[in-house]
Design a binder for these strands. Structure first.
Length: 842
RNA sequence: GCCCGGAUGGUGAAAUCGGCAGACACAGCGGACUUAAAAUCCGCAGACCAUAAACGGUCGUGGGGGUUCAAGUCCCCCUCCGGGCACCA
């Protein structure tokens, strides 16, 4: 007789996830309707639960497992609470790794990607994740990316997509352009050791800056988003109110427009500073070889510093051009300098330098002996010689500033801007740090940009000019047979069949745009497609999107706080303005989970501390693996992966299994109420209350699971009482039924198995969530801490609901309290009913 | 430099509204069961002091100060760690 056969014969089958999980997975896989969302007419409130879609690398990692365990627990809970839940999954399937793999393995990117998707979909099914696969979205398929192209054309029509030549970030490793958002500390977001170069290229941009103000003000309303993410986006948008002021160049026709946030200090300006790239600086240099050389040197130094990754470390320096500018407020001549710390791409690339009231200007003036002129003083004690630079603008007033002398700084900022405007030499303005989104990528594995260049040109289009394709020409399909190289621009440029086409307007020869779109375009609107994934005539049906949106809960890593989460907010606003949707923001609530750490560092291949989810599933089962991911730390904090902990959860599940199977027979028992029931039912209802509360509030599933463990410990401690019928079978039935239901969001396989064993009807995660009965949950006795002067003396028991007088009397009657208080004067007694008594003595 | 987080036993953590600090687990130790081990079950477990034992005492939530009958929790100052932004005019 075999080992396992004997244990079965004893009626004590052991918990075996290796048998339970594949069995249920097969049943679930066979039932397409199991996790399908219902229609708008379901009569239930809707709940859109979404986890960020993964890049199909081929392997789920623990970060994914954690992310999906959180989302899955929530989705299942919401089903059980009677919601119509949309819980979809998809693949962010374009991107460079597929091209790298193609180079390495000689596999076409499409094949490699689709194989990875199949592998990861299977892993997700093994995890028991409740996705509606009928709505699956794969961004690298033409059914999806044709709508990227469609949106691109819509944006082009509205001037939101445009082409311009500019300095762009170039990653030599990726051999492509990067958006500003993809440059981290001067390096590529995919290659932290690769410094990004600046190149002059003609590229496609999306006009995200048009929505800068709305993207910023909308953050205030996103109360369901972490403050951290909102702050990061605010900083990224970098709105700054100020004034543009034109300084005429003395002895020249040119003018220099400076941007300042402190126009009230303009009477203190003692120089104008230009970025080395500034056009006026270049013009001066044209007739001044010495200056030209100095500017050249400055640019070279900046380039070197950028390549060393430490732009901030170069010392501020500048050169006097020998020319002067006219301050339009007082007609004073101030010297024009070129300085290395002036940024060409912020504001106008030119500033007025006011050493008395700006830290950097003060430092710079000190170095070169430029004038320092105080024009702002504190309102209170304005005559005091406070230390310069004095940079405050609240409770500050102007001095030596002509007709504005005596004005407050804040008022003067408004009035002087208005004056400049009235006199035609300036205006109030708003500047942003946010730049338009460069979306051209010189890579193969991405969405082709639906534009052609008409070679001969036709009316309104010069030779080689841009012509948008008509919608009927979509999708522009990526050619399949492409030689992938990482040199010499987009691989599409070498596919002549693709390249050579005809102009849709004049039918003359034309060549296609060979750049592809940034993959962040794909992920900017994918969650709308889930609501209508099979639509072949539109990106989605507006009625469907309007029913489901906004996303009720979006869950993902904080690393997307700027990139994906700002692009997708932008896309939502564009789609709203196209009349496709009604919502202003994609997600009402956002949750950013912590990282998964091992041995003190984020899990990564390079650190060699990766723990494979497959291995964990093999050793402990999917239920134990996902439950551990929820138990080891609250979801917003970093989680240290300790395999012993997974083993611990596995032991807990085994205990649940043993006890539930042992008492499964109680389901058919007679219905007698017993006095032994009270304590066990009390613990049950306390547990239901706790777990329910955690779901609706802060998602501290670690404490939910802890409270279920306490319940199991209590059940285990009552085994004798249950065996001897001191506890009724009705109570036993209720306890196990609720226990299994509470387990369903965390350990769905085991819950399904046990639900069947105890005779439950239907799918366990569609059964109504148990409701806590406050009456049953109430303790009969309360433990009251008794303190003397705030120090614990003893704990006394009083009947539940005892009033203040009773509680106080019980505390004062305690022998230890009497001994402590004896011989001292009781100053006062503080009673917190149900909690504590504090006797203050002298 | 600026802006967010965070710091609690050997470890992960709990304490949700200012009210018994360390729930629940991991690792550990002791015991039961076993020829033995695994598994399982029972028990111990913040530090220090005291004690034959029991009862006990003192300290304790990064450091310092404050408010309060009462502080991990509130206020002020500081240290360290993680993250974001940064010559942004």
């Amino acid at each position: 007789m075999s080992e396992s056969a004997r244990s079965v014969s004893e009626g004590q089958q052991r918990y075996s996830p290796a048998e339970i999980e594949p069995k249920w997975q097969a049943r679930w896989d066979a039932d397409e309707s199991l996790y399908a969302a219902e229609g708008h007419d379901s009569g239930k409130p809707k709940f859109y639960c979404l986890e960020m879609l993964p890049y199909p690398s081929g392997q789920l990692h623990m970060g994914h497992v954690r992310n999906y365990a959180i989302g899955d627990a929530l989705a299942r809970f919401m089903w059980m609470r009677g919601y119509n839940v949309l819980h979809p999954m998809g693949w962010d399937a374009f991107g460079l790794p597929a091209e790298n793999a193609a180079l390495k393995n000689n596999t076409p990117p499409r094949e490699w990607t689709l194989a990875n998707i199949a592998a990861m979909r299977l892993q997700m099914r093994r995890m028991g994740l409740s996705y509606d696969w009928a709505t699956e979205v794969t961004t690298c398929l033409p059914e999806y990316y044709r709508w990227n192209q469609w949106f691109f054309l819509k944006m082009y029509e509205r001037g939101l997509a445009y082409r311009k030549k500019s300095k762009v970030n170039w990653c030599p490793e990726c051999q492509t352009v990067l958006a500003n958002e993809q440059v981290i500390d001067g390096t590529c977001w995919r290659h932290e050791d690769t410094l990004v170069e600046q190149r002059d290229l003609t590229q496609w941009f999306l006009r995200i800056t048009k929505y800068a103000d709305e993207l910023l003000s909308g953050l205030d309303k996103l109360e369901g988003w972490p403050e951290k993410v909102r702050t990061m986006q605010r900083n990224w948008i970098g709105r700054s109110e100020g004034t543009l002021v034109d300084f005429a160049v003395d002895g020249g026709a040119e003018k220099i427009t400076v941007f300042t946030t402190r126009v009230d200090t303009i009477f203190g300006a003692t120089s104008v500073q230009l970025a080395p790239e500034h056009v006026v600086a270049k013009n001066f240099a044209a007739s001044n070889p010495v200056l030209a050389g100095q500017i050249e040197e400055m640019l070279a130094q900046q380039k070197a510093a950028r390549e060393a990754g430490d732009l901030g470390a170069i010392e501020k320096h500048g050169v006097d051009t020998g020319r002067f500018a006219v301050n339009p407020f007082n007609s004073e001549l101030v010297p024009i300098w070129v300085a290395n710390y002036i940024l060409a791409d912020y504001g106008t690339g030119a500033i007025m330098s006011v050493p008395a009231h700006d830290e950097r200007d003060f430092e710079f003036a000190g170095k070169y002996g430029l004038g320092v002129r105080r024009v702002i003083v504190p309102k209170a004690g304005g005559t005091a010689e406070e230390v310069l630079p004095y940079t405050a603008d609240d409770d500050a007033a102007l001095v030596d500033s002509g007709e504005w002398t005596g004005e407050s700084s804040v008022d003067a900022q408004v009035k002087m801007a208005a004056f400049a405007k009235a006199n035609g030499f300036g205006t109030a303005t708003v500047t942003y740090r946010l730049k338009d989104w460069g979306v051209s990528r010189q890579r193969y594995w991405g969405t082709p940009i639906p534009m052609v260049y008409c070679e001969r040109g036709h009316t309104g289009v010069e030779a080689g000019g841009v012509v948008p394709l008509p919608e009927s020409a979509l999708p522009v399909v990526l050619p399949a047979q492409v030689e992938i190289t990482q040199q010499g621009g987009s691989p599409l440029g070498r596919v002549t069949d693709f390249m050579n086409t005809t102009c849709p307007v004049c039918s003359g020869p034309a060549r296609r745009e060979t750049d592809t779109m940034d993959t962040f375009v794909d992920s900017s609107w994918y969650f709308y497609r889930y609501t209508d994934a099979k639509n072949t005539s539109a990106p989605f049906d507006s009625a469907k999107a309007n029913y489901w949106f906004p996303i009720d809960q979006y869950i993902g890593g904080v690393e997307h706080a700027i990139l994906h989460l700002i692009y997708s907010r932008f896309w939502t606003k564009v789609m709203r303005d196209l009349g496709l949707i009604k919502n202003d923001e994609p997600a009402a609530r956002l949750f950013t989970q912590g990282m998964v750490i091992k041995d003190g560092a984020k899990m990564s291949k390079s650190k060699g501390n990766v723990v494979s989810p497959d291995l964990m599933i093999e050793r402990y089962g999917a239920d134990a693996t996902r439950m551990y991911a929820l138990f080891a730390a609250p979801p917003d904090r970093d989680l240290e992966w300790q395999e012993e902990g997974v083993a611990g959860i596995s032991r807990f599940l085994a205990k649940v299994y043993r006890l539930t199977t042992k008492y499964a027979g109680a389901a058919t028992g007679e219905k007698i109420e017993s006095t032994g029931d009270t304590a066990l039912l009390r613990k049950l209802h306390q547990t239901i209350a706790k777990v329910t509360q955690d779901f609706s509030g802060r998602w501290h599933f670690n404490t939910s699971i802890a409270s279920i463990m306490i319940l199991i410990n209590e059940i285990s401690a009552n085994e004798l009482a249950m065996d001897s019928a001191e506890i009724s079978s009705a109570a036993i039935r209720e306890v196990f039924r609720s226990l299994v239901l509470m387990l369903a969001p965390f350990a769905p396989f085991l819950a399904a198995e046990l639900w069947e064993l105890i005779g439950g009807e239907g799918a366990v995660f569609r059964v109504a969530w148990p409701v806590a009965d406050a009456e049953l949950a109430r303790e009969a006795e309360m433990e009251i801490a008794v303190q003397s002067n705030g120090k614990l003396v003893t704990v006394v028991k009083v009947p539940a609901g005892s009033d203040e007088a009773t509680t106080k009397a019980a505390a004062l009657a305690d022998a230890k309290v009497v001994a402590r208080v004896e011989g001292k004067t009781v100053v006062k007694v503080i009673v917190v009913p149900g909690k504590l008594v504090n006797i203050v003595v002298k």
